[in-house]
């Protein structure tokens, strides 16, 4: 019974997706971070400059370069790093008035998971390693 209720609730949360909002799908090959999550706006690093899409934007297909994706939902904002990928913006498929924005990136991780100092350290270790082998 508990399982059934949980299932029902999950279904409900998907179905009651508010009207007239932007449905964001943010995915990399290994992980679907958001699937049709209603948000206010999303800012992405296009190859021709950073831009923001909201609901009812004109239809767009854009190539993305390495940079930070900023997702805004009310007062909440989240940052994700993207290596490169594409953004597809589509018209609503039903009467809810929710446009869909789909971001498919080769690598997408939350910026909080990245640590520049650690990365620099690992990189320097890696760069140093072949030299050690050569000298020994």
């Amino acid at each position: 019974m508990a399982l059934r209720t949980a299932r029902f609730l999950r279904f409900a949360s998907e179905a009651t997706g508010a009207t007239n909002r932007l449905l964001l799908t943010l995915t990399s090959p290994g992980e679907a971070i958001f699937i049709k999550k209603p948000v206010d706006s999303v800012t992405v690093p296009g190859t021709e400059g950073v831009f923001t899409v909201t609901n009812n934007h004109s239809l767009i297909v854009s190539q993305l370069k390495a940079g930070v994706i900023n997702v805004r939902d009310g007062s909440e904002t989240k940052d994700y790093f993207i290596s490169d990928g594409f953004l597809f913006f589509n018209q609503p498929t039903d009467a809810s008035g929710c446009c869909t924005a789909e971001v498919a990136g080769v690598e997408i991780v939350p910026t909080s998971a990245l640590d520049k100092d650690k990365a620099a350290q690992v990189l320097s270790e890696l760069m140093a390693a072949p030299k050690d082998i050569k000298s020994s």
Partner: peptide
């Protein structure tokens, strides 16, 4: 489930 949303838009 994780990777189909990635492949489908294109």
């Amino acid at each position: 489930e994780n990777s189909l949303p990635f492949a489908n838009p294109v």
